[in-house]
């Protein structure tokens, strides 16, 4: 059975974007990886893609999934710039197929960036939500 990981697809799209890669390649699903969270003075940019909700629509075999983008950086303007770069990857983008065969019919950035800082490390970050209209079954490869 093919596992359609929505968060994985979002991470892969961000990693494949040269503008995002120019700022950071630390794009993490669900939670930061070891070494991402640093103390004040040595903050590094990274992005966490957190799945929020993915209600199914059985009649169309689709789901409108919501993921949160949390973009961390050394300063608030840098966090905002990173968020806007990430948001541009998804905003008003049409149909495509992820490498996991997840069909993405369209994606839209719902808002943001909202600026905040992490309660533990005080690292500035910008966050917002992305809606992805996706298939709930794997899309067959061409020629099948």
């Amino acid at each position: 059975m093919t596992l359609l990981t929505l968060t994985g697809a979002a991470v892969a799209e961000l990693l494949a974007d040269p503008s995002v890669a120019a700022i950071t390649t630390r794009i993490r699903p669900v939670e930061p990886a070891a070494g991402d969270a640093q103390n004040a003075g040595s903050y590094i940019p990274f992005v966490v893609v957190a799945p929020i909700d993915a209600p199914w629509r059985a009649e169309t075999a689709t789901s409108v999934a919501t993921v949160a983008l949390r973009c961390y950086a050394a300063t608030y303007p840098a966090a905002e710039a990173l968020y806007l770069t990430c948001a541009a990857v998804f905003h008003r983008k049409g149909p495509r197929i992820a490498s996991s065969r997840l069909g993405i019919y369209g994606s839209l950035v719902g808002g943001g960036p909202t600026l905040s800082n992490d309660p533990d490390t005080k690292q500035p970050y910008a966050y917002g939500l992305v809606d992805l209209r996706v298939s709930i079954q794997p899309t067959p490869p061409l020629g099948d």
């Binding site: 930061p32 969270a37 966490v48 957190a50 533990d120 490390t121």
Partner: peptide, 16 residues
């Protein structure tokens, strides 16, 4: 709580 932090995963309640 809704979106998570560096040390805590997201526990969404409002959007669901």
């Amino acid at each position: 709580q809704e979106l998570g932090t560096i040390k805590m995963n997201a526990h969404p309640f409002l959007i669901p």
